[in-house]
């Protein structure tokens, strides 16, 4: 069976939506939390270990170690959780290649505008996602399995979120 890797941007990392909905829905075997704060904070890692179902293998690594961690162990279905768009770009720089990037939760903050109730993006983040769309693969907002907004880039290079 082919290996499938899902990359999800979610500032809450491992939380109710992921535990209750995404892990069973995707039949996740391996979960990797790629986050510098979580990797450097033993208490945070311990909380995530407590929250993850027993059937799932969990690792919590700094973003720069993500590509190495993926290569070190194989699994049929892997879910990678990354805090924000800039960390996803850093993961690419570290050598991880992926052709689909899902935005789950990107919280509201000064300088960010609302895309959906759960996703807010700055211009810099939108530019980064447009580059990913043009060079690497699909960008989708999918907070819940039933939702799917795809990023399209028109001939002028302008982004548009379309429901299909």
């Amino acid at each position: 069976m082919a290996e499938s890797i899902h990359v999800r941007i979610d500032n809450r990392l491992l939380h109710g939506q992921v535990v209750q909905y995404w892990i069973p829905f995707l039949e996740v075997e391996r979960l990797i939390i790629a986050d510098d704060e979580a990797a450097n904070n033993p208490a945070m890692s311990a909380v995530y270990r407590m929250a993850v179902p027993e059937t799932v293998t969990l690792s919590v690594v700094p973003v720069s170690d993500l590509a190495r961690e993926i290569r070190a162990n194989k699994a049929t279905t892997t879910l990678i959780l990354i805090s924000d768009v800039s960390d996803a770009a850093r993961a690419q720089v570290s050598g991880l290649s992926f052709d689909r990037l899902v935005l789950g939760n990107v919280h509201a903050a000064p300088g960010r505008t609302r895309i959906t109730d759960s996703v807010y993006l700055s211009q810099e983040e939108i530019d980064s996602l447009v580059r990913f769309r043009l060079n690497d693969g699909k960008v989708e907002i999918q907070t819940f399995p039933g939702e799917r907004l795809q990023l399209e880039v028109d001939n002028n290079g302008d982004p548009k979120w379309s429901r299909r």
Binding site: R12, L14, H15, G16, V19, Q20, A43, M44, V47, Y48, M50, A51, V52
Partner: peptide
């Protein structure tokens, strides 16, 4: 409300 949810994880810290 929920084991593994954000309120639970935040409080655990």
């Amino acid at each position: 409300d929920l084991v593994g949810g954000t309120p639970c994880n935040t409080t655990a810290l």
